[in-house]
Structures are given as structure tokens and as C-alpha cells.
């Protein structure tokens, strides 16, 4: 099995990579630290799994060489699973890239990283509800501190391709049930 770590620049992909594989790729606090991919290995439930630290990209339409490497990596590995690393304090843009990858049919796990930064900014994310809407595992993490990494590994097996139509339906349902609940509360 092969797992790609994908996400925007400077969301912590290399931190996950080092945590997962025990490798030593460079981690820094600026976008564009990783400009080429690095491969490493880890064991999940006895199986050897190859992990790839992919350069950061904002979307699947590359705008520089590092992003070209990222998109090519995704397209060369049609059978890979993807850990979509999202900066929890900038969740919408992260979801945009995640949606693009979901639409291409890849099985996905979302790591809502930097939960601490989001909390500093008073942003609260209902990970459970996000998981129900998207139909894929969503795990809150603080990668530099190692929080949530175990759960992330454990949930990788639940990653599966989902149909965008289902997500649209779930999102609509979710808002309906909420308005229903609101109406009930008002009454």
C-alpha cells in the first residue's frame, strides 16, 4: 500500500512524514520547504506501507515546479490512499484541495492539523459532523506535538472513495436536520 501526504504549503506534511516514518526530512515554518518528494516506510498492522511526503500545492492546477511535482505524484499513483493535511485555521481552502482529490476517486483521510492554532483563533470544528458529511475519516491533530497521530494511523483503513453526489446530499441533509432542530427548538 502507498499513502501520499498532500495539502497546502506549510500545513505540516513533513512533520507527519517524520512522525510516521521516523525519517528526517527538513521541517520549517515557511511555505515551500519541501520542493521534491521523499519516500519512507512504516508498518500498519503488520503491513509495510510506503509513505510519500509530497510538496505542498494549493490545487491540482500547478502554478510552480514544486506544485507540478505534487500533482504528477498524485496522478502517477492511481492506487494510492491520500492523507489530506489541512490547516484547521484555514479549513475552507484545505477542503477545496481535498474535494479535488476526492473527485478524482482517491480514498482519503483528512488530518485537521494545527488544532492548537485554530483554537488560538477561536475556531471550533465539529470533526464528527464533518466526517459524517464527507463520508471519510476526519481526525484532529497537532502534528508537532504528536497529538492525534495514532488515531490517524488507525483510521487509514477506513479511507474509501466517495461519490461527490453523496457529499452534496449529506450536506443538504445536515442543514435540513439542523433547521428542523432549530424549528423544533423555537416551537
Amino acid at each position: 500500500m502507498k499513502i501520499l501526504l498532500m495539502g497546502h504549503p506549510n500545513v505540516g506534511k513533513s512533520v507527519f512524514f517524520n512522525r510516521l516514518t521516523g525519517a528526517n526530512v527538513t521541517e520549517s515554518n515557511y511555505p515551500g520547504t519541501t520542493v521534491d518528494y521523499t519516500k519512507g516506510w512504516m508498518k500498519i498492522e503488520g503491513e509495510d506501507v510506503e509513505i510519500v511526503d509530497v510538496p505542498g500545492t494549493f490545487s491540482l492546477n500547478p502554478k510552480d515546479r514544486a506544485e507540478e511535482v505534487a500533482v504528477a505524484m498524485l496522478h502517477e499513483n492511481k492506487d494510492a490512499k491520500v492523507i489530506s493535511v489541512i490547516d484547521a485555521s484555514k479549513i475552507e481552502r484545505g477542503l477545496y484541495l481535498a474535494m479535488e482529490i476526492i473527485e478524482e476517486g482517491y480514498p482519503l483521510v483528512i488530518a485537521l492539523n494545527m488544532r492548537d492554532v485554530a483554537e488560538d483563533k477561536n475556531i471550533v470544528i465539529d470533526a464528527g459532523r464533518l466526517e459524517r458529511i464527507l463520508g471519510i475519516p476526519v481526525v484532529s491533530t497537532v502534528a508537532i506535538a504528536g497529538e492525534g497521530i495514532k488515531e490517524l494511523i488507525y483510521r487509514i483503513k477506513d479511507a474509501k472513495p466517495v461519490n461527490v453526489a453523496d457529499i452534496i446530499a449529506n450536506a443538504a441533509n445536515a442543514s435540513n436536520t439542523e433547521s428542523a432542530a432549530d424549528a423544533g427548538g423555537a416551537a
Binding site: L95, E103, V124, I125, R129, L130, I133, V164, I167, S175
Partner: peptide, 24 residues
């Protein structure tokens, strides 16, 4: 199925409204 850029943002808007609360 692939969405257009606009539809994708609409969907994400809906999802984030359901799952994210922005405090002060």
C-alpha cells in the same frame, strides 16, 4: 463526478457552515 470551481466552493461553503464556528 467532477464539480466546477464555483460548485465546489458552494459545497465547501455549505459544509463549513455546518461544521465550523468562528468565535470572536
Amino acid at each position: 463526478m467532477k464539480l466546477s470551481t464555483g460548485d465546489r466552493w458552494d459545497l465547501i461553503d455549505k459544509i463549513s457552515k455546518e461544521t465550523v464556528t468562528f468565535g470572536a
